Amino acid sequence: MAVTAAMVKELRERTGAGMVDCKNVLVDVDGNIERAIEVLREKGLAKAAKKAGRVAAEGLVKEAISSDKKQGAIVEVNSETDFVAKNDQFIKFVAQVANIVLENDLTTVEELKALPWPDDTSKTVGDILTEKISVIGENLTLRRFVKMSTNGTIVAYTHGGGKIVAMIDMAGEGPKVEEVGKNIAMQVAAANPQFISKEDVSEETIAKEKEILLTQALNENAIAAKPKPENIIEKMVEGRLGKELFKEICLLEQDYVKEPSLTVEKYVVQELKNKDAIRAFVRLETGEGIEKKSENFAEEVAKQING
């Protein structure tokens, strides 16, 4: 029987095994999918399918930067446990994937998974991921990646051994720019801003935050011993927007973590004489936004033992 692409796809979806392994086994068993599943299980290549339902919320984020510092990439690969995230084999895999992203123009994770693996071009990135799941024994997820390009300088900072990576696009070049960029990347990793400056914040965001602050202020005013007029409350809210909201979400407005007497903007101007030196930033944190399952450790061990 001729092996079709549809048959390979079905076998891969049912087993989680690599595309090449699925095709080869189907050829060996003359297209018998049920027998192919048995063969893959016998070879240990279908293990990944049993683990695919587990929540992978730990893992690593890793960066790669080109030698000329004009391009940078960050990838996040998740594992089930922090223990695996410290595994040398896993760390090497994530670093290799980061380099693959750096060297290719990609828009989706699926495109990344379909690329050939540099050490064995007969296999794809997705195939190698599936193999790692079988060998390591945990569900692993290639979750997301970002890539930056510039005519200035790309600088990155990694926190917590790969828990957080912040990457900055800085205007200009040279050791001073790299030093300031590294410090700004540390700021982004620590303070997690959403925008560079106040000008980047949308009117919609400001209006929503103003509404929240106004409601809070009016509620507080309603139970105050000496309530203030509503127009005074509105002016107070405007002041709180500048002091609280923008300082929280805007990088340039934040207190500089290494010298709190300065804002980030004042630090950048002091060092580089250019308030527009920070052109873009991105921050990835491992497991961010993933709902983690809370399980009894003894029960989890029992599950592992019982298969």
Rank of each mutant, 00 (worst) to 15 (best):
Glu42Ala: 13
Gly31Trp: 13
Val27Cys: 00
Gly31Asn: 06
Ala49Trp: 03
Ala17Met: 11
Gly18Glu: 11
Met19Val: 14
Glu38Phe: 05
Val29Ser: 00
Glu13Tyr: 02
Lys51Gly: 02
Ala46Pro: 08
Arg41Tyr: 00
Glu38Val: 12
Ala48Gly: 15
Arg35Thr: 09
Lys43Thr: 01
Ala56His: 09
Asp21Ile: 07
Val20Phe: 09
Lys23Phe: 00
Asp28Cys: 04
Ala52Pro: 03
Ala17Gly: 12
Val25Cys: 06
Val27Glu: 14
Ala49Tyr: 12
Ile33Pro: 00
Gly59Met: 08
Ala49Gly: 12
Asn32Ser: 12
Arg14Pro: 05
Asn24Gln: 13
Arg54Cys: 01
Ala49Ser: 14
Glu58Leu: 03
Ala52Ser: 14
Leu40Arg: 05
Gly31Ile: 07
Lys47Tyr: 00
Asp30His: 10
Arg14Ile: 07
Gly18Lys: 07
Gly59Trp: 12
Leu45Val: 01
Arg41Asn: 13
Arg54Lys: 11
Glu42Tyr: 04
Ala17Pro: 13
Val29Gln: 08
Gly16Ala: 05
Leu26Cys: 08
Glu42Met: 03
Val25Trp: 02
Glu58Ala: 14
Glu58Cys: 10
Gly44Cys: 06
Gly16Phe: 07
Ala52His: 01
Lys51Asp: 06
Asn32Tyr: 08
Asp30Trp: 03
Arg14Ser: 15
Lys43Glu: 13
Glu42Pro: 00
Lys43Gly: 11
Glu42Arg: 11
Glu38Trp: 06
Ala46Val: 06
Asn32Cys: 09
Val27Trp: 04
Asp28His: 10
Leu45Arg: 14
Asn32Met: 08
Arg41Val: 05
Lys43Asp: 06
Val27Gln: 08
Val20Cys: 04
Ala36Phe: 11
Glu42His: 04
Gly16Glu: 07
Ala46Glu: 08
Gly44Pro: 05
Arg41Thr: 09
Ala48Asp: 05
Glu13Trp: 01
Arg41Glu: 12
Val55Pro: 04
Cys22Asp: 03
Leu45Pro: 00
Gly31Gln: 06
Asp21Ala: 15
Val39Arg: 07
Lys43Met: 13
Lys23Asn: 02
Ile33His: 04
Lys43Pro: 00
Gly53Phe: 10
Asn24Lys: 15
Ala52Lys: 13
Arg41Gln: 12
Gly31Pro: 01
Ala56Lys: 12
Lys23Leu: 00
Lys50Phe: 11
Gly53Arg: 12
Gly16Val: 06
Glu13His: 03
Val29His: 01
Ile33Glu: 05
Val20Thr: 15
Ala36Ile: 04
Lys47Ser: 01
Leu26Asp: 02
Leu45Tyr: 07
Gly16Pro: 10
Ile33Cys: 04
Arg54Glu: 05
Gly18Phe: 07
Val29Ile: 02
Ala52Leu: 04
Ile33Asn: 02
Asp28Asn: 13
Arg35Ile: 11
Asp21Ser: 15
Asn24Tyr: 03
Lys51Phe: 06
Glu58Thr: 03
Val25Ala: 05
Met19Glu: 04
Asp21Pro: 07
